[in-house]
Design a protein around this nucleic acid. Structure first.
Lengths: 369, 369
DNA sequence: CGCGATCGAGAAAGCGCTTGCCGAGCGTCC
DNA sequence: GGACGCTCGGCAAGCGCTTTCTCGATCGCG
């Protein structure tokens, strides 16, 4: 760049004049404080060794005066590890994921961690590619929030990639379902759905349809299975042609509901959509077909995303504490890395036990007379 | 030339055996390919200089074999600049922000950029603090998506911080409103609101109330001003006591609507909430009060977030292409940095002109007889 | 009062990568 | 056929930081 610059006596950088700009470096601080680089570094971060109070405050003063802020990349290189948490979601605009993201971000900045986001757009090839490029970041943690599909050909490659990553010292955390053999914030999809089934039977419903977003999606499958087995306990079976597959999205719910309507719906029936965004789409499909959700056909969802309290009728669903799930994911990742805070982990976030879900009955499933 | 293998005899890294873990470095690749570090670096990234095809492919092979992935932190240190885009939002769960975030993320990974997220929780102190800690990341771009308040005491500090950042080579982009003198993806809040007012008058409404989330919020103020001046063009004034302030959130909308109801609402009235989440809250407040939105009181919002198509009645609002706004923000930031792609920027994202908004009339504002 | 133990500042060696510069090899031009 | 470029590897000097190690100074203790 500027050549050799013996720097001391000549100080060539000053004559350049007014436009100097780059942020202060640790060396600037050390020089300004009249101490060595090592002492400056230790005063500002170095935990393992103490620094004489007088020196320390000289350094702190100088740092404040120069508005010094350590270059995180350089720290990462020197330390061999970053403060980055990588969050991989399917779709940021989906409230399910944005709630989780909010939790991760909230937890992260209590630990001075940086969170980076990437979106798979529900494409497992893209997910794999994202995880691959993530390696370059050398994140401390990778959190995978989306569910994977049954029999996905790239799953094995993903697992290997993640195993390599953990072998290099990283931590992987999965959300919802342990599909790959890593730490997981489990959401009890099956028993949540079973509880919902029980509650609906209790409300007097006897006919059931299911909007299952892509049955191959393991989360969707768990919810469907839980739901049907909950019904079985009451001696009720869901007819195969009343289980319709569609995309795991709002539009998927809309389309699925349309085909259900086309096949004929009954007034004593409840349609269970395996997630809330689909349920919300289903409500709209009903209305667009001239039906009144709740009265003509009951609807229930899963997740309890914020918006379901503002649709009409308000949606019966299974609450999942999504923001808390996001926080728990990060805590779980850091658990043994930090070697602290391990004692006070409350039951709801304990490594093994799944996050508790609870049925919330609202207006979309009125009690049958 | 492959015969000599100068490193053969010593090769100390191999005997370590099974537990080796850290990712391959460029040096590993260079050694495996039998070339120098420089050549390896240039083959894998170095743009300015060409590398003999034979060498190049040896390097590429070795890199693939070792599953090499360049350490981004080290690159950042060596190059003096990162590939990071920092996005600062008020609240990730708010669809307004998550839509913008989705746009930023989508645009980012077309440019191999990494996006990091932080949430201010609508607290300007926190915002300032976030921007300060962001400096450590040395991001290439900082995108500020939230609006600021009139007369905020920390605004000046924020501006200085951002100016320092730009002086150091960064790029700041604001969204919605140029409150601080940086590049901005402007959203035409005032004229969008004015158009909405005109449309509502056209539908036969003559009485208006406004739910303004914290009047000090400049975006809220612009929308209010635009709305009232649109009405003035039709010779209509909004009575001062029909403008209620509350939080810029769903709950704020709910509370605001409650107080409007308490003061008495009329059937020929439309309540304009300055954003959609507030409007959605208002709808719920109406229903909880036993009123039927649309029929008893009309409601309109602003932003056209996805959910407003699924509430009932569907919400009349002003469309803002939020995802596109996010993309445009990043493009705008990179514009002169990249020194390319500058020609084909379509009109909607041209630096100066605000993003186009358009009124969308739905069921929440039926035509008055 | 002397000697080992302790403390803590500073020099310096990295961390993984980029890039300015040198110089070997080769083509080209008159 | 000789001088003059060019092209392109490789050396080595960084980038901003951490951390080991060295070593002088200080302290405690008998």
């Amino acid at each position: 760049m500027t050549g050799n610059t013996p720097d001391g006596p000549t100080a060539p950088s000053l004559d350049a004049g007014s436009r100097r700009s780059s942020p202060a470096t640790l060396e600037d601080v050390a020089r300004a404080a009249g101490v060595s680089l090592a002492t400056a570094s230790r005063s500002l971060n170095g935990s393992s060794r103490t620094v004489n109070a007088a020196y320390r405050s000289k350094v702190l003063d100088a740092a404040a005066r120069l508005n010094y802020s350590p270059n995180l990349s350089a720290q990462a290189v020197a330390r061999g590890s970053t403060m980055t948490v990588a969050l991989v979601v399917a779709d940021i605009t989906d409230p399910y994921f944005s709630s989780i993201a909010a939790g991760v971000v909230a937890e992260a900045d209590q630990g001075r961690l940086i969170v980076t986001m990437a979106a798979t757009e529900r494409d497992s090839e893209r997910e794999l590619e994202i995880v691959r490029t993530l390696r370059g970041q050398r994140p401390k943690v990778i959190i995978l929030a989306g569910s994977r599909r049954e029999g996905d050909p790239s799953e094995e490659a993903l697992r290997r990639e993640l195993e390599d990553y953990e072998r290099a010292g990283g931590r992987v955390v999965l959300i919802s379902r342990n599909e790959l053999g890593f730490r997981t914030v489990q959401i009890d999809n099956a028993s949540g759905a079973a509880d919902l089934a029980t509650a609906l039977v209790g409300l007097g419903y006897r006919r059931f349809s299911v909007l299952t977003g892509n049955r191959e999606l393991k989360t969707a499958a768990d919810r469907l299975d839980g739901f049907t087995s909950g019904l079985e306990r009451a001696g009720i079976r869901v007819e195969a042609d009343r289980v319709v597959q569609s995309a795991f999205t709002r539009d998927g719910g809309y389309e699925g509901m349309r085909s259900l309507i086309a096949a004929g719906v009954q007034a004593d029936e409840v349609v269970f959509a395996v997630n809330d965004v689909m349920a919300v789409g289903a409500l709209s499909a009903l209305r667009d077909a001239g039906l009144t959700p709740g009265a003509d056909v009951a609807v229930a969802g899963f997740d309890d995303i914020p918006t379901v309290q503002d649709v009409w009728p308000t949606l019966t669903t299974v609450n999942v504490p999504l923001v808390e799930v996001g926080r728990a994911a990060l805590r779980l990742a850091l658990e043994e890395t930090d070697a602290s805070v391990s004692a006070d982990s409350d039951a709801s976030t304990a490594p093994g036990s799944p996050v508790a879900t609870s049925v919330v009955v609202r207006d979309s499933t009125p009690r049958r007379a």
